[in-house]
Design a protein around this nucleic acid. Structure first.
Lengths: 237, 237
DNA sequence: TGCTTAAAGTGTCATAACGACACTAATAGA
DNA sequence: TCTATTAGTGTCGTTATGACACTTTAAGCA
C-alpha cells in the first residue's frame, strides 16, 4: 500500500487517545504582589473549583498549540499577553478523573492594567495573589503547575528581565527592581541590578520621566529586538 | 447532574482529538563525535525514512508520559538511559500527514557502550553523527526537534556537567572536557573546566586510574545525589 | 637506571564581574 | 532656601574567570 492510499483509509478515531488540553499560568504584578489569573470551572469535573485558564484544542479553529493557548487566554482577558512561554507537558492516567489526560502548560505575563477591564466583565475570573494560594484547593493538578511556573519565573528574575513583561509597557527601573525583589524574596543591590540591566541592553530609555515622591525616575521600555524572546521558543520558527 | 453521574456517562470518544505521541533525541558520544539514535520507520506515513525513536501513548501499559518515553527507548536500546529530560511539546495541524498531531519531545543521554549490544539486534536503528545529519531528510519535523535538543545540550555544556551522562559510568576529566569541547565547538581551558567541576561538587573520585599515554588520569563518577537531576523535572515529584 | 615523551593535573597572575555602601542629583513641599 | 524623599552613580574590596607556565606521573627505550 502506498502512502496516499494509507492516508485515505486512515481513521484515527479507531484509536482511543488521551484527552489533550493546554493550561496557562498568567502572572501579573499589582499592589506589590505577584498574582495569577484563576478561572472558576463551569463544567465537571471539579465543577466550581478555581483553576488555570485553558481548555481543549479545537482542531478547526487552532492551527497550532500556540493558537489554542492564545485563544483561551483571550477569551478570559480580551487581550493577548506580550510574553508566553511553554513550560512543560504533564500527562498521566490519573490527573483528570475522565481518564488519561495530557496538558501542555504555559507561563505568561501581562501588565495588570492591560486586562483589568477584560476580566471585570467575566465574573468567573480573578487575580489571586500567589501568597494566598497555598490554602486553596485548585482543580486538577493546577496547584502543582503553578508551583513549577512560579519557580521558573523566580529563576528568570535572577538572570533575565523577562519579569518586565508583567509591568506596563513603560516602567521605571525601581519598579522593575521591586518586582524582582518580590520574586526572589530578598532585596537586591540597586547598583548590581542596574548594571545587569545595562549589560543586557534589552531596555530603552524613553526619555520620559515619572514624577512621584523624590527625584523623577526615567521610564524605560523593552527594545523591539527583545521581541525575539517574547514568544514561545518552539519549532514553528 | 453530580460529578459521579457525569463521569459515568462521559465518553471522550465522542470528540475527535489530535494524535499524541512522544519522541526522544537520544545522544551519545563515541569516536570523538556526538551521535543521535535514529530509527527507520516501518509504517506509513514517511515509511522508510529515518526518524526519532518514539511512538504513541499506550493507555493500558503507560501510567504516565514518562513511562511511554522509557518504554519506547527500551524497545530500541534494551536499556533505560540515565538521563532523560523533557524538552518541549510541538503540536499543529500539519506536522503529521494523518492530521492534527501533538508530540512531547524528550532529550536523553546514554553511554555508547551501554547500548551497543541492544542496537545490534535491531537492524533498523543506528547511531548517526550529528554533523552528518543536515544532509539527510528525516521523518516529520524530527530534524527540527533534533536541532532544538542539540541547542539545549550545548547550553548545558556551558554551565553544567549533564553531558557526562553520555559517557560510561566512570570517566576521566579530560574525556569529559573533550566532550564539552565538541559540544560547544571550541577548546576550553583545562584549569577553568576543572574549577567548574570541582565547584559543582557533583563528581566523585573513584580512586581508580586509567592508564594510557602519559600520566594516568583519575576516574570519576557521578555522585549519588546528582540523581536529583537525572530525571525529568516534572510534576510527578 | 636514567632520559625522553606524553598526557594529567596545579600555581599564579592579570582581568573582569559582583556585592556593599557611601555618595551625588533632582524633585516636592514646607 | 531648607528638608525629606526617591533616583541614580562612584568606588573599593572580594570573588570568579581566562591565560599560561609549571609540576607530576606514567610508558618506552637506550
Amino acid at each position: 500500500m502506498d502512502e496516499a492510499t494509507f492516508l485515505k483509509t486512515y481513521d484515527k478515531r479507531k484509536f482511543d487517545t488521551p484527552l489533550i488540553s493546554v493550561d496557562s499560568t498568567l502572572f501579573t504584578y499589582h499592589d506589590h504582589q505577584l498574582k495569577v489569573l484563576l478561572v472558576k470551572r463551569s463544567n465537571h469535573p471539579d465543577l466550581d473549583l478555581w483553576g488555570l485558564p485553558g481548555g481543549f484544542i479545537d482542531m478547526q479553529q487552532d492551527k497550532s498549540i500556540r493558537d489554542t493557548v492564545l485563544r483561551k487566554l483571550e477569551e478570559k482577558t480580551k487581550v493577548i499577553p506580550p510574553y508566553v512561554e511553554q513550560l512543560q507537558c504533564v500527562g498521566d492516567a490519573n490527573r483528570d478523573k475522565r481518564g488519561w489526560s495530557v496538558t501542555v502548560c504555559f507561563s505568561a505575563l501581562i501588565a495588570h492594567q492591560d486586562c483589568e477591564v477584560g476580566i471585570a466583565d467575566v465574573s468567573d475570573a480573578a487575580w489571586v495573589a500567589v501568597d494566598t494560594l497555598k490554602d486553596q484547593t485548585l482543580a486538577f493538578d493546577h496547584q502543582a503547575i503553578i508551583t513549577v511556573a512560579l519557580e521558573r519565573l523566580r529563576q528568570k528574575a535572577l538572570y533575565s528581565i523577562v519579569p518586565a513583561y508583567a509591568l506596563p509597557e513603560q516602567f521605571t527601573l525601581p519598579e522593575l527592581q521591586q518586582l524582582h525583589e518580590v520574586l526572589i524574596g530578598k532585596t537586591i543591590q540597586k547598583k548590581s541590578f542596574r548594571r545587569r540591566i545595562e549589560q543586557a541592553e534589552l531596555l530603552e530609555d524613553t526619555g520620559e520621566k515619572r514624577y512621584e515622591g523624590g527625584r523623577p525616575a526615567a521610564l524605560y521600555k523593552m527594545k523591539e529586538a527583545s521581541g525575539e524572546y517574547t514568544f514561545v521558543r518552539n519549532l514553528e520558527g
